[in-house]
């Protein structure tokens, strides 16, 4: 294949990866930014989102588009409810102690993964894309659904941005993130905000997963890669910075796509991890993070 179309394909693949990654990493970044909780179980909420998407679509047995739409609504709600319950039952009891939350979320990771293995089983199962549309370019064909993923992810991020900056709930979240004690003094229900943020973070992961299941398949081990990449993105972008997260997701997603196509996926992962090391050495707060006071 000539360089031009080859590069086009690489860029399209990179953009799809970046879109899903941005949504997923945004959830992780939000949880860390507001709650200062490193959520190691984030990848499993992603996986849970995909598995529930399969469950919803196969249970309904309606037209793929309707099933997908139902999954897009039901799956994040269930995952959000589970995450909210986990937050109430576990994280509040350990008072969000940084070390303890890491251990606790590792525990959640295994509980969710094994519970899915025991119920859903070890197989990968496909979800039908909502529409069957293939774009035939002169050099290669491309799935129309993948382009839809980019669009949907961009809309989702706009919605999150609007929610955070233009709504009262967003204001409460930002106030809690800025200064928890002062926020409490101004009668902001910090505990409720925490519970909500943890649930929303997991819901974003689930949304990313619902978007991705028609491209990949739902599988109980699928949470590993998104977790790793989300951490890479969040560290490079600056923990807690939404702008940084989105920018880093685009950089990492695009470079991952392009390097994977031209060279090898392993090299792409090596370079991304190396980038994290350099960021930690020279700019520990990340591209847009604030220096710790």
């Amino acid at each position: 294949m000539d360089f031009g179309p080859f590069f086009l394909l690489a860029a399209m693949e990179g953009a799809v990866g970046a879109a899903v990654l941005a949504v997923t990493a945004l959830g992780l970044s939000l949880v860390f930014g507001v709650m200062r909780v490193v959520n190691v179980a984030h990848g499993e909420f992603y996986m849970l989102g995909a598995v529930i998407a399969w469950w919803v679509t196969s249970l309904l047995g309606v037209h793929p588009a309707l099933g997908f739409l139902a999954a897009l609504i039901v799956s994040p709600l269930i995952v959000g409810a589970i995450a909210g319950a986990a937050e109430r039952l576990v994280l509040t009891r350990i008072h969000y102690d940084p070390e303890a939350t890491i251990v606790a979320t590792i525990g959640m990771l295994y509980i969710i993964q094994q519970a899915v293995l025991m119920t859903y089983g070890p197989d990968a199962r496909p979800v039908q894309p909502p529409f069957d549309f293939r774009i035939q370019l002169p050099w290669f064909g491309y799935s129309g659904y993948k382009l839809f993923v980019i669009l949907a992810a961009a809309l989702l991020m706009l919605a999150v941005w609007w929610g955070l900056t233009r709504t009262r709930v967003g204001l409460m979240m930002r106030a809690t993130q800025f200064d928890r004690e002062t926020a409490r003094a101004f009668a902001i229900p910090v505990d409720t905000v925490y519970g909500g943020v943890f649930a929303v973070g997991a819901m974003l992961a689930a949304l990313g997963a619902v978007l991705v299941t028609p491209i990949q398949q739902a599988h109980y081990l699928m949470g590993h890669d998104p977790l790793l990449l989300s951490f890479i993105v969040v560290i490079i972008g600056g923990l807690g910075s939404l702008r940084g997260t989105v920018l880093a997701a685009v950089i990492i997603g695009m470079s991952d796509g392009i390097i994977s196509v031209f060279f090898s996926p392993t090299l792409a992962k090596i370079i991304a991890t190396l980038a994290v090391a350099f960021v930690l050495v020279w700019r520990p707060q990340g591209l847009f993070g604030e220096r710790p006071a």
Partner: peptide
């Protein structure tokens, strides 16, 4: 363990007469 395969296909040369494929793992349908 790969779950996304599209990126590998551009490496198939255009003069290929026979594409020989063998794949394992959970992602085979994809």
């Amino acid at each position: 363990t790969e779950s996304n395969f599209f990126k590998y296909f551009p490496r198939i040369p255009r003069e290929t007469e026979v594409l020989y494929h063998v794949m394992v793992g959970p992602g085979v349908l994809t």
